[in-house]
Design a binder for these strands. Structure first.
Length: 417
DNA sequence: AGTCCACCGGAAAACATGGCAA
DNA sequence: TTGCCATGTTTTCCGGTGGACT
């Protein structure tokens, strides 16, 4: 970031390009290039491939859109529609459909003079009752402090804000399964019954989950009132992914840059990974970026292949770099121990880890904690940890490193120590 | 047949941080 | 400032485990 970062900061602070949103270095540089006429040879409009972009039409989701709209349409008259539950795997268009339909409804409502508003909360990002409530409340223009208040207090403020506004509030809770797994269904229960505490306003909930078994271990009361209506989203198959990618590619790329064979290769790769449309779009975007970097005039299958590897490596690299210090130290220790002997155990890792912290006069964490960290690293897929009973020699976790990730992990940990 | 290793992993308590409200 | 609240991280405590070894 040596490239006159002050300048970028200046730009970012002033939004002088009039983009009207957070301006990243990437955007600024692209804009600079564009202004000098050095426009991309590959992209016509990169935005179209961005994960948050909601296109004008959602192919292969006509049925789901119709269903959802049908359920929610009563809201246009100001009545409370049923709560809806959407399920399906990641990248099957649940979020896009929900946002799409609700946004259209809100637009329509205002022309009919109906008070309708919505809140979209990703409960994986906002993963506590407090944050979720705060986020919902903020969609009504209610400012709630970061932390400090009792949850019940936030709830109370939300209620009073609702009632003084008096319209219908549609709350979209994305990835609710994450939230409930972590916090239980208390908040959900409360939200579902919120209408009983309201006099004027009404609240209606759209729950989204990608865990299909999620509903089963839900409190039956919550289950019945959240699942008044249910819509299931099937994964896209390769053909459908192809249409989706094609539609976006036509907007995103210059004419003649991508041909169908490349798109169908992308579609095939993504279809292999549970038909995840988001992954497919990422793949296409990164392929384009690689092609551009290489100065190519057309996208090739080879670019897609490289993109696929790059995406995977990037995920791993990012997850390591953003790890807290002690997690990194443990990982680094594992790296060294395994490259000496191929595998280690919790005890060995812990001993070496303590040495390492001492060297830097840091307080070492307890073994209990390190054991948890090892499990956590395993869950992230960076290492392989298996609980093994060695009889006379006790129970421990046998730790190995994933061979194919070793170079990336090393790279990501280079500056630790 | 019984011992015993070297941890596992649940539960609860302690600590740290950060913000509001009075 | 002080007290309260929420959240996240780490420590403390401790019962549990299952097969190699005697």
């Amino acid at each position: 970031m040596g490239f006159n970062s002050e300048f970028l900061l200046y730009l970012a602070g002033h939004d002088q390009w009039g983009l009207g949103r957070m301006v990243s270095a990437d955007d600024v540089i692209e804009e600079l290039l564009r202004r000098r006429g050095l426009v991309s040879r590959i992209f016509a409009n990169r935005e179209v491939l961005h994960p948050d972009y909601v296109p004008d039409t959602l192919p292969h989701r006509e049925r789901e859109i119709a269903r959802l709209a049908e359920i929610l349409i009563v809201s246009a008259k100001g009545e409370r529609p049923s709560n809806v539950f959407l399920y399906g795997l990641t990248g099957t268009g649940k979020t896009a459909v929900a946002k799409y339909v609700v946004k259209k409804l809100v637009e329509k409502a205002s022309t009919y003079g109906v008070d309708l508003n919505y809140a979209y909360v990703n409960t994986r990002k906002f993963d506590t009752a407090y944050k979720v409530l705060a986020s919902i409340a903020s969609s009504l223009g209610l400012r709630v402090p970061h932390t400090g208040l009792a949850v019940s207090e936030v709830y109370r403020r939300y209620l009073s804000a609702l009632d003084s506004w008096g319209g219908l509030h549609i709350v979209i809770l994305d990835e609710v399964d994450f939230f409930v797994k972590k916090n239980g269904d208390d908040l959900l229960y409360k939200l579902l019954r919120v209408n009983e505490d309201l006099t004027k306003a009404r609240v209606s909930i759209i729950g989204i989950t990608n865990d299909l078994n999620f509903v089963e271990n839900l409190d039956p009361r919550v289950r019945s009132s959240l699942g008044e209506e249910e819509i299931v989203f099937q994964p896209y198959d390769a053909d459908q992914l192809f249409t989706i990618l094609k539609q976006r590619a036509e907007l995103a790329f210059k004419p003649g840059v991508v041909d169908d064979s490349v798109i169908s290769y992308c579609a095939a790769l993504a279809a292999r990974e549970h038909g995840d449309a988001r992954r497919a779009l990422d793949l296409l975007r990164v392929s384009g970026e690689i092609a551009e970097r290489e100065g190519a005039e057309k996208l090739t299958v080879e670019h897609v292949r490289k993109a696929s590897i790059e995406l995977e490596e990037n995920r791993v690299y990012q997850s390591i770099v953003s790890l807290p210090l002690h997690q990194k130290l443990v990982l680094k220790t594992i790296l060294e121990e395994t490259s000496a002997r191929g595998q280690t155990s919790t005890g060995e890792v812990y001993a070496k880890y303590v040495e390492r912290t001492k060297k830097y006069s840091l307080e070492p964490l307890t073994m209990r904690r390190v054991s948890d960290i090892i499990s956590q690293l395993d869950m992230m897929g960076l290492i392989l940890a298996e609980v093994v009973n060695r009889g006379r020699y006790g129970v421990t976790k046998v730790v190995k490193i994933r061979g194919d990730l070793k170079p990336i992990i090393e790279k990501a940990l280079r500056d630790v120590d």
